[in-house]
């Protein structure tokens, strides 16, 4: 069994996605036009991550 993952590997991707989400939420709020488009792109990223991760079995089902 491998050593447990460090904090950065556990929360790193979550924090990056969180910041992208925050940008997406605020971009459309504070601007119009291009800022709306940037907001759509930013907010699509977390949803794409979900779709990508759920699209196939990506873990060792023997674990946990």
């Amino acid at each position: 069994m491998s050593l447990s993952l460090p904090f950065r590997q556990i929360y790193g991707p979550a924090i990056v996605i969180g910041l992208i989400t925050l940008y997406g939420l605020l971009s459309a709020l504070l601007g119009d036009g291009i800022w709306d488009v940037l907001s759509w792109i930013a907010l699509a990223i977390p949803l794409v991550v979900i779709a990508w991760k759920c699209s196939r079995d990506n873990g060792t089902s023997a674990g946990a």
Binding site: L5, K53, C54
Partner: peptide, 18 residues
């Protein structure tokens, strides 16, 4: 509590066959 539960799992682990 996400952290402790994910200590042995890569980010986005999804075991659809499990």
């Amino acid at each position: 509590v996400y952290g402790p539960f994910m200590r042995r799992l890569r980010f986005g682990t999804y075991r659809s066959e499990a």
